[in-house]
Amino acid sequence: MGKTILNVSHVGMRFNLSKEKVDNIKEYVIKLLKKELHYNEFWALKDISFKVEQGDRVGILGLNGAGKSTLLKIISGVFKPTEGNVTVEGKIVPLLELGAGFDRMYTGGENIFLYGTVLGYSRDFLKEKYDEIVEFSGLGEFIDVPIKNYSSGMRARLGFSIATIVDPEILILDEVLSVGDRKFKKKSLNKIKSMMKSNVTVLFVSHNTDQIREICNKAILLEHGRLIAKGDVNDVCDYYEKLIEEEYDIEDLPKKMRKKIKQKKQQGMTAKPSETPQPETRG
């Protein structure tokens, strides 16, 4: 049992979805006068609570639009939650879409310093690690080419190399292992695994349950902005796979759902033999 390193308590995030973006005064005033300035409220997240202990690797599962990225952005401080709060102890390195925070006009090498300082490293430290970063990214001579000419894979490789140069306390990975070629994927997976040995806490978003099972020891499942399952990685992954296959009524409560799954499982098991054609009893 480690200490709690991340505590998410009753977090909710509300967005105002205005039908059209009002970003000039004329429209604003007109709409204000006509009282058309109403928004559709939309809760991307509602009442999310969980704790993460040091050394935990938590997989975050959910369909598109379930609120996974919003949750990660709240944890990394990009969004401020509408309600509830998040306490983090330690340094977070967020890898939300690799290469965010790069400047397109800058070369790869210049971006190492820019992105590195965004992540809070000092210039001297980055100078020291420069060769190591370039080496790991495998960019070679392309490091002196402006980022705008990079492929998305190259950008991702550079981003990953910079962000993982130090073992952070919390590493946030949002679908990062789905970019880059197979060789780099393997390399970065190994890197994450070696970081895991040094007791780093990982939050990992992926649609690939195999990857989640491989990396994580715990998992949470989001559905329409609500936390519907948390616990051991295998249980939650099984549950998620079932959910996708069988399209449960998502409004149901988790407990109910679990029961349902069990029931269906049993039914399925008993039903299976009946599918095989029964010897007909004929006279």
């Binding site: 400047d103 800058y106 210049e110 310093f113 820019l114 965004v118 809070g120």
Partner: peptide
């Protein structure tokens, strides 16, 4: 203070990009 390196880096970026090319 903890973000001073970034501030320096952003200032440099502004100057560099202004006169690039």
């Amino acid at each position: 203070i903890s973000y001073r390196h970034l501030t320096v880096e952003l200032v440099k970026k502004g100057i560099k990009l202004k006169y690039r090319r």
